[in-house]
Lab assay of single mutants.
Amino acid sequence: SRSVIRSIIKSSKLNIDHKDYLLDLLNDVKGSKDLKEFHKMLTAILA
């Protein structure tokens, strides 16, 4: 869910600018399909 993804971003080791950017992107995501794609992208970034 959106709140879980937000929590993953906030607890990541990324610097604050990257976190803010990803949180802004997350706010722009519409629909469950796009949310799944965003989660895939985030997982790849944090891997």
Rank of each mutant, 00 (worst) to 15 (best):
S1Y: 14
S1I: 15
S1Q: 09
S1D: 13
S1E: 13
S1A: 15
R2H: 10
R2V: 13
R2L: 15
R2I: 14
R2G: 05
S3E: 12
S3R: 08
S3G: 10
S3D: 15
S3C: 07
S3T: 09
S3I: 08
V4T: 10
V4R: 11
V4F: 07
I5K: 01
I5E: 02
I5H: 00
R6S: 10
R6H: 06
R6W: 02
R6M: 09
R6Y: 03
R6F: 02
S7N: 15
S7C: 08
S7A: 14
I8Y: 03
I9Y: 00
I9Q: 00
I9D: 01
K10W: 03
K10P: 00
K10L: 11
K10T: 06
S11T: 11
S11W: 04
S11F: 05
S12D: 03
S12F: 04
S12N: 03
S12M: 04
K13Q: 11
K13N: 15
K13I: 11
L14M: 05
L14E: 02
L14C: 04
N15E: 13
N15I: 08
N15M: 06
I16F: 07
D17V: 09
H18E: 15
K19L: 04
K19G: 01
K19H: 03
K19E: 04
K19W: 03
K19A: 05
D20M: 14
D20P: 00
D20I: 12
D20S: 09
Y21N: 06
Y21L: 11
Y21T: 07
L22T: 00
L22H: 00
L22M: 04
L22Q: 00
L23R: 03
L23N: 03
L23T: 04
L23S: 03
D24Y: 09
D24S: 14
L25Q: 05
L25I: 07
L25P: 00
L26K: 01
L26E: 01
L26D: 00
N27E: 08
N27I: 05
D28S: 15
D28N: 15
V29G: 02
V29Q: 06
V29D: 01
K30V: 13
K30R: 11
K30N: 08
K30F: 07
K30D: 07
G31I: 05
G31V: 05
S32F: 12
S32A: 15
K33Y: 06
K33I: 09
K33H: 12
D34L: 15
L35R: 02
L35Y: 05
L35W: 05
K36T: 08
K36G: 10
K36L: 14
K36S: 10
K36E: 14
K36P: 03
K36Q: 11
E37H: 08
E37S: 09
F38H: 02
F38M: 02
F38V: 03
F38D: 00
H39E: 13
H39P: 01
K40C: 05
K40A: 09
K40D: 12
M41N: 05
M41E: 06
M41S: 04
L42C: 03
L42E: 00
L42R: 00
T43L: 14
T43E: 14
T43Q: 12
A44N: 13
L46D: 01
L46I: 12
A47D: 09
A47P: 04
A47M: 08
A47F: 05
